[in-house]
Amino acid sequence: MADGGAPAARGSSRGVLIRDDWPGFPLHLFSFPKHYAEDLECVLIPHGIIMDRTERLARDIMSDLGDHDIVVLCVLKGGYQFCSDLVEVIKALSRTSERSLLMRVDFIRLHSYLNDQSTEDLHIVGPEDLSILSGKNVLIVEGIVDTGKTMKALLKHVVTFQPKMVKVAGLLVKRVASGVGSLPDYVGFEIPNRFVVGYALDYNEYFRDLSHICVISDDGKRKYKV
Rank of each mutant, 00 (worst) to 15 (best):
Y203R: 06
F161H: 01
V158S: 00
H111T: 15
G5P: 05
P192D: 00
L201Y: 01
S100R: 11
L86M: 07
A177D: 07
L133H: 02
H47Y: 15
E55V: 14
E142I: 12
M51K: 06
P192I: 01
V168E: 04
L183D: 12
H28K: 15
H111A: 15
V72N: 05
R53K: 06
M51I: 00
L40N: 02
A92T: 14
P184K: 04
D116Y: 13
G220M: 05
P46M: 02
A2P: 05
V168R: 07
D85K: 01
I50Q: 05
V226D: 15
S100W: 10
H68S: 11
E55R: 14
E120G: 10
P184A: 05
A200G: 05
V226Y: 15
R99D: 11
F195N: 00
Y186C: 07
R99V: 13
E190P: 07
D209I: 05
L73G: 06
V72H: 05
I45A: 00
L57F: 00
K156F: 14
K221I: 11
E38D: 12
S112A: 15
V197D: 03
M51R: 09
K223I: 08
S97C: 12
A92P: 09
T150W: 01
M103K: 03
L172N: 10
L76E: 01
N137K: 11
M151R: 03
T54W: 03
V176T: 12
L201C: 01
D3C: 03
K167Y: 08
K149D: 09
F207E: 10
A200D: 08
G181Y: 02
K164C: 08
E55D: 13
G11Q: 13
G179W: 14
L27M: 10
S94F: 10
E55F: 14
E190I: 06
